[in-house]
Amino acid sequence: MKPALFTYHRPGTLPDALALMAEHRGGARVLAGGQSLMPLMAMRMTRPEQLVDINRIDELKGIRDTGDTLTIGALTRYSEILRAPLIADSLPLLSEAIRHVAHHAIRNRGTIGGSLALADPSAETPATCLALCARIVARSSAGEREISVDAFFEGLMSTALAEDEILVAVRIPKRPAKVPHAFLEFARRKGDYAQAGIILAPSHGGVAENRAVVFGIGSTARRSAALEGAMTNGLSAEAKAALQQEVTAIIDDDEGAAYKLPIVMTLAERAMGRLKP
């Protein structure tokens, strides 16, 4: 359970970090909170030759009010997000989701950007950013671009980030506290990864469409057209059948479809109940 050999870099500025990423291309990985990367390295599931520790880069930290959106620096830790009045006021769904992330000791270190860049299909943050219609801000030495969350998660732990890019921030449309939402997941023990979860984010002034996300099944968190329809028309027998069909299509037998499908269906009913005034 020890990582393979690597060279450790601790750049003090973002340009220095980006220069390292450009120099080493696929050979370098970014170390943010380390709460997932360190285990992956310990288990030798990844063995970067160069590790670029961004923890001392201050410009990647913090939450800013950017008009209709909040811009959250990639290195903002879960504990900081949970403490931030801006998040409690303008993105209560994100607070609720993050309360489900592991444990206090993990939330003190884990970062929102690290979780997005890793793209674990069972993790709360990627799924919630998908539901919240976030935009991912990525930078390389060549410049900055914004990626819609709908185009960001490409597959199992795979994203649209290029090898020389660092995820620097996420921009999320504010969501007034009075707009209802639902976040439900089922885990066998408190703090464990979810077996499955459902997020419902009905439309509001800042986001014109209903967004529903199912996570913990398949290779990545996904929007559910069946649930998005049900958010307007109710969870009818037809909507349930459509949801069942969607889930069956993406679930892998290795994941235990027979076990997970009833969990999703139960969570869907409960989540719909949460939206009622």
């Binding site: 450790y8 170390l31 380390g34 709460q35 360190m38 285990p39 310990a42 000791a105 993990i106 003190n108």
Partner: peptide
Amino acid sequence: CEHGVCGACTVRYDGEIARSCLILAAQTD
């Protein structure tokens, strides 16, 4: 467990609890 699950290695790091198996000694300078 040495991968952040069991919590037996919990320490206080810069005033907040953390899993010491998930922090590199190199980072702690």
